[in-house]
Design a protein around this nucleic acid. Structure first.
Lengths: 68, 68
DNA sequence: ACAAAAAGTAAAATTTACTTTACATTTTAA
DNA sequence: TTAAAATGTAAAGTAAATTTTACTTTTTGT
């Protein structure tokens, strides 16, 4: 799965730390998700999408390998 | 976070086992998510939404306590 | 009423998300 | 150019997702 968090942050001009505060996780968690180190929970994805006023699908999208 | 998977399954008339096959998890995982035993990953939420041809937000929604 | 299918549930094991701490590197602004 | 801010990263620890196996209860169809 890929995501556009880095782009959305740039548009909104907020730092990883600020986004982390808004969605109540650590800065490293945001960094790890941007770097595709792991897949966030649905709660976190919904919060991130809400911060950026976008649908979850506009920020997170499935890739071939997500279906095996 | 709550979800409407049980309702969507009823509309589409598919069993927990069939949905589990479609999204490639165990039947118990679907059951646990329907029963709010735990929060699925974003990959799984995207797959479930796709199966039901709905947006993630139409199936999964945040509740007060998800923001603390 | 009966059998089969579906759903509920639970424990143990495994994998993965997320935190905390800490430090290194890169970018930004004066 | 230099300091501060932002980002990258890593290890150790904790919490939570997911699987597997297995059994019970409920629902459905005949």
């Amino acid at each position: 799965m890929k995501n556009t968090i880095r782009i959305e942050r740039a548009i909104k001009n907020i730092t990883q730390a600020e986004l982390a505060d808004l969605v109540k996780v650590s800065r490293q968690t945001i960094n790890a998700i941007e770097s595709n180190k792991y897949v966030p929970s649905t709660v976190l994805a919904l919060k991130v999408a809400k911060v950026f006023e976008k649908k979850v699908e506009e920020i997170f999208s499935l890739e071939e390998e997500d279906w095996q």
